[in-house]
């Protein structure tokens, strides 16, 4: 059951990214290009995605997942160094190429060599994260 739900969600996520145009790096970089020919599409995608999800979060109150034991706990409100440094790095990489993790996977089937190179580099970065995180923590502890 959990596997079927994961396949449906993954497939719909890919379909939505594809149809919305978010696998087109011109559109994403166009959204970030507020000093040039600004493309607002990404804002509509985000807005459109947030609406059903806001309803879903409300439905979680006092219930259990259909095929799970519990819903995610309330998020922490702590703004950590990791959150800030990580988000800055993510934004820089996102701006350089116009791909973030979802669209990088969704466009793999038609993104050619550039798509593969980006995805492999992204996976290397992800695999290196625990080690980099340890170094950051050590610096914080000694500071």
């Amino acid at each position: 059951m959990r596997l079927i739900i994961a396949v449906i969600a993954g497939g719909l996520f890919g379909l939505g990214l594809h149809l919305s145009g978010m696998t087109d790096t011109n559109r994403v970089q166009g959204f970030l290009d507020i000093f040039g020919a600004w493309d607002p599409t990404l804002a509509f995608v985000m807005g459109g995605a947030i609406v059903p999800m806001a309803v879903a979060w409300r439905l979680t109150a006092g219930r259990k997942p259909l095929a799970g034991s519990m819903f995610p706990s309330r998020p922490s409100t702590e703004i950590t160094r990791r959150l800030v440094i990580g988000s800055v790095m993510f934004g820089i990489g996102w701006g350089l190429v116009g791909l973030c993790p979802g669209p990088a996977m969704a466009s793999l089937g038609y993104g050619g060599i550039p798509g593969v190179v980006f995805l492999v580099a992204m996976m290397v970065g992800m695999a290196a994260a625990p080690r980099v995180s340890q170094i950051l923590d050590r610096r914080t502890a000694s500071a």
Binding site: A9, L12, G16, M46, I50, P52, A67, G68
Partner: peptide
């Protein structure tokens, strides 16, 4: 497309938590 993405996220949350 955004509504579809939000629906996908809702299914994963309400289904698998």
């Amino acid at each position: 497309g955004g509504l579809i993405i939000g629906t996908a996220a809702s299914i994963l949350l309400l289904g698998n938590g």
